[in-house]
Design a protein around this nucleic acid. Structure first.
Lengths: 242, 242
DNA sequence: CGTAGCGTTGAAGAGTATCAAAGAATGTGG
DNA sequence: CCACATTCTTTGATACTCTTCAACGCTACG
């Protein structure tokens, strides 16, 4: 078993051998030579929750694959009001190609593990590999679909529906095991109440009250503020406004 | 002059010769042969305001370039609440590649002129032309940036700021002549009050009241419900939250 | 003229934000 | 291991924004 793996992997960079991004992320678009080339300039590293990865109006110098943890993408108004405009889970690609300056902030929501490569390396590789550009297009379209779904939530749902929708999103997004049609789900919230509020366009207090209500109604159970148990996903879905 | 044009255009399909999409739209990525191939299967047509172009959960059979007018992309909840999740102006590309079913509705907001081609033609061309895929990626990223900007508006701005932001968006988006830093602007709203409300996540009445307030405060003038004059863009910007 | 669609205005009410305080959870140094 | 400080969360009272419901005005059109 181990031997056969070795045979197949003899020309795959050590860095990449156990990397999820190689299968489901953008790196899956690269052949062995390209992967080797990219691996030479790439670095794996970890950051703590709360650390900023990319600042608004900052020059973009690198791109990353999210290997573990959750990254939140935020935008702010001049007076400090903040909105989370995207959440990235492994193995999402983090970065905005073809722009010099970032229009958003990226911050580690949990402790995060990343594989980063310089902008130049990626852009060179994009030119060389249509397959890579295809992956990037797929990722961009996926994020666009998600953003548009979320616009409906932000614009048209009540606070109660927003919180239920958020729990559903996390339940299905954080662990592919909790798939679309699972009857129950158990997960840890990757965000604080403040982050959830920024994601939903609500205040901390309203989020808290809605969670309390869901708990009081027996739709969810919460332990240690973060750990959530949903026994009956259908009941939660009914509260999400669909 | 006319002769030289002819020389340059002798191999450009008649259909495409005066088309804006050939310069600024996705067709700009195609060489003469590819353009000729695509033009054979493409059709120009016009639709009236209110007509549906693509239905939610409908099979995607064609893609289009918007040549004139405004197309609104909407999503709805099961109880009828609706949210506009995107507006497309010429020469935007309309359609979601790599999906069998549409997740959104597309409807003509004004009378619209389109150039449509069958799904198969585009997908064949994407495979053949990395440059086309590159354009599609650029367009997807542009729409993603817009969607995220709008999420901040939906989630964190007040009704007054939302309406001001909308007017700014239309002023700069509808006519490139009203560019970013113009001092004044004149334009026709491409949307009804109901559409504006669906775009901003508000009710018709609130939109109307906020417009009235902007008018009362001398920030805008409105004629015939649709025609808007902004003498001082800075004043409008100050009310948009930014 | 009468009707239909779109927009405006007013009054009342619901939903969410704001302000304030207290209760958990987490970490720190004694 | 415990007292303490800090941060995060919950809960309550009040204020305000926006929605809802209702009526009316304007314009186009048969």
């Amino acid at each position: 078993m181990a031997e056969r793996q070795d045979v197949h992997n003899f020309d795959i960079p050590v860095l990449c051998q156990s990397c999820e991004a190689r299968h489901h992320g953008v790196c899956g678009a690269l052949d062995h030579d390209q992967l080797a080339g990219l691996a030479k300039t790439s670095v794996k590293h970890s950051v703590e929750a709360g650390e900023e990865l990319i600042g608004d109006a900052e020059a973009i110098e690198s791109f990353s694959n999210v290997l573990a943890g959750v990254v939140k993408l935020t935008k702010s108004l001049s007076d400090g009001r903040q909105q989370i405009v995207g959440l990235q889970f492994a193995p999402d690609f983090l970065g905005r190609p073809f722009k010099h300056e970032s229009a958003i902030n990226a911050e580690a929501a949990t402790s995060v593990s990343l594989c980063s490569f310089p902008k130049t390396a990626i852009e060179r590789m994009i030119k060389a590999s249509p397959a890579l550009e295809h992956r990037l297009l797929q990722q961009a379209l996926k994020e666009l679909d998600q953003a548009r779904d979320w616009m409906v939530t932000l614009g048209r749902k009540t606070a109660a529906e927003k919180v239920a929708s958020f729990l559903l999103m996390i339940a299905t997004g954080i662990d592919p095991a909790n798939d679309q049609d699972a009857v129950s789900a158990v997960f840890d919230l990757p965000l604080t109440r403040a982050d959830i509020a920024d994601f939903l366009g609500l205040t901390i207090e309203t989020v808290s009250r809605q969670l309390t209500k869901l708990r009081a109604d027996g739709v969810i159970r919460i332990e240690n503020n973060r750990h959530v148990v949903v026994d009956n996903m259908v009941r939660l879905k009914r509260r999400s406004g669909a």
